[in-house]
Amino acid sequence: MKIKKVRDLTLVDLDQDKTMVIACDSCGSIGLKDGDVLKVSPFITGKYAARVAILEVVCAGAEVICLTNTICNEMDPTGKAIIQGIEEELKEAGISEIVLTGSTEENFSTVMTGLGITAVGLVETKKLKVNNIKGEALLVALGQPKVGQEVLNTRQEEHVGYGTIKQLLQDEKVYEIIPVGSKGILYEMQELARNNRLHLTVYDHIGIDINKSAGPSTVVIAAVSANYFSKWNIAGTMVLLGKVSLEALASQ
């Protein structure tokens, strides 16, 4: 059994045909407790923390089979609300046949909301969309980077949706899909290029803040063939960021 880490993913080769994909996310100080900085319902906390881990697994081409929630608070009322939020996100993602398990803190009282999420998925190895770029690709951002209260104050269509992700996954000319987190678009583009051993070219005058946190993965980067992009038929906010290629590598 071979295990490796790529970006925020852990990949486990189960056999020649199947790969397990594992991703996680943590969330602290977001809730309704006295010590929380961002005051929102724990339902929202659970929903958006689950979104991050789910997107990581789904964007790799895998099917989520298990999701764990490690809640650092009491079950009632905080834990119950968090779990309801997780279940709502699973519903939005179209995931129903899944093991949902977790734990809560019942020994001590807490003054701040804390949550950890782990998602586990399975994929046919040949369909895994990780380090999969064929020499050159255009990089496209779908969604707008939002963090904190901005996530709640913006229209849903400004966040990339599961329907868009599923549409992209169906085309072999979409080589990789990378959820963007707190380190921003530029960081994820750099990691994508490094992991694929390609040169990154970032276009000028993009019109989007590529250094800003995208919070609960309100943005994904799609690495696509130029031919696919020329026939682009994806709904939602889209920005052409740049490209990755073999260009200039020989001189480095």
Rank of each mutant, 00 (worst) to 15 (best):
K2S: 12
K2W: 04
R7C: 02
D15I: 03
Q16M: 07
K18N: 11
M20H: 05
M20D: 00
C27L: 15
G31C: 00
D34A: 15
D36K: 07
V37I: 15
K39V: 12
T45L: 05
G46M: 06
A49T: 15
I54P: 02
V58C: 06
I65S: 02
I71K: 08
I71Q: 00
N73C: 14
P77C: 00
T78D: 10
I82Y: 03
Q84T: 12
G85V: 10
E88F: 02
L90Q: 03
K91H: 12
I95C: 00
I95G: 03
S96Y: 09
I98D: 05
V99C: 08
L100W: 06
L100E: 05
S103W: 05
T113K: 06
I117G: 01
V120N: 02
G121Y: 01
V123E: 07
V123W: 01
K126H: 04
V130I: 14
N132Q: 13
E136H: 15
H159L: 11
G163Y: 10
K166A: 10
Q167W: 05
L169Y: 06
Y175Q: 05
I185E: 00
E188Q: 13
M189V: 07
N195Y: 14
N196L: 05
H199R: 10
T201V: 12
D209M: 01
I210Y: 09
N211E: 13
P216D: 10
S217G: 08
V219E: 05
N227F: 08
S230M: 13
L240V: 14
K243C: 03
K243P: 01
L249H: 04
S251Y: 10
Q252F: 15
Q252S: 13
Q252L: 14
